[in-house]
Design a protein around this nucleic acid. Structure first.
Lengths: 172, 172
DNA sequence: TCTAGCATGTAAACAGTTACATGATTGC
DNA sequence: GCAATCATGTAACTGTTTACATGCTAGA
């Protein structure tokens, strides 16, 4: 269960409330590990119950600020070094490719063209984001840039693939 | 819910039993849309209840062979042409990158080197698979090849990224 | 005869999504 | 005063995984 560790990771160095974390998920982690409000609040309660985080401050409107405990940090490190990342992924986009044979060649090409366009747009957005951020050389910047670079390479790869794939579909 | 449509897609042209479909998931669809035995049998029952497939033949050992109905084929086409693929993905590998700052630079480089090695191995396997298959020019081959090409490009991209990323991690 | 593989089904637990529900505070 | 945003929580549902449970059949 990576959600638990994503929360621990976000709490390193700066305490935050559920609401703060929700925003972090919706921005920086949106394309890596999306999570809903429901999930986040529930998981924070469990993490606090297990002593991996503590409520360090209570603010207005029932705000609860959580801080990572030593146990929590140790667990984060254990997860990073002692466990293998899960690699089971599902791709709806690719699944559909397997079944394009039931459509006309024109429809199949349209589908692939749509995917190429989508990837191109994503690539442009990520490139713009990269340019807009003022990267320095602290940890957050180094690893944030590495992750963003992944996104850009991935989007470029998808675009090139979809454009190539389109040329492979011949009329029956 | 794509599992439903994956089953419909696999039943195009050739009737199959739950057991046959399970094997198809474990081989060709393993990296695209993994599914368990439990899920498959349950979903087949629902699809039959809804008239998208029918039990066309009963064999030994309680074997039930399912055939796609016209309604089922129509639904598959509707899914392909009228609905947008879901693009919410989760990447445990990438999530960990965000938090490599809590490790030593050496540990972070080790992690990235491990990912590079893993991607390289996957790439080699997919390349070998590609070479081993006797592709002809029917629909299955065309779209199967396109999907496999995606896998190869993706694995190559991941390897190159991880190797590059490793060089970005400097000692603090 | 016995083993491997064929063949299906169900129950419980876990993860994730959607929807509902409520209320406080800040700034205009 | 009102709207936007801050802030949390719960319930119901869907999808996925793991484990249990059972039995038949073909071939060595």
């Amino acid at each position: 269960m990576s959600l638990r560790h994503a929360l621990l990771g976000l709490l390193v160095d700066h305490p935050a409330s559920g609401y703060d974390l929700l925003k972090a998920f919706d921005t920086s982690l949106a394309n890596v590990w999306p999570a809903t409000q429901s999930q986040i609040y529930g998981e924070l309660t469990k993490l606090a119950d297990n002593g991996l985080i503590v409520v360090s401050e209570q603010g207005p409107r029932g705000r609860k600020e959580y801080t990572l405990t030593d146990t929590g940090l140790a667990e984060l490190r254990r997860w990073l070094t002692q466990t293998e990342p899960q690699r089971t992924t599902r791709s709806d986009v690719l699944l559909r490719v397997f079944f394009l044979g039931v459509l006309t060649p024109q429809q199949a090409r349209d589908y692939l063209a749509g995917q190429a366009a989508h990837a191109a747009e994503l690539h442009a957005n990520l490139k713009a984001l990269d340019a807009a951020i003022d990267w320095d050389d602290d940890n957050l910047s180094v690893y944030g840039r590495i992750a963003l670079e992944y996104g850009q390479r991935f989007a470029a790869m998808q675009q090139e693939w979809a454009e190539w794939a389109r040329t492979q579909v011949r009329n029956a």
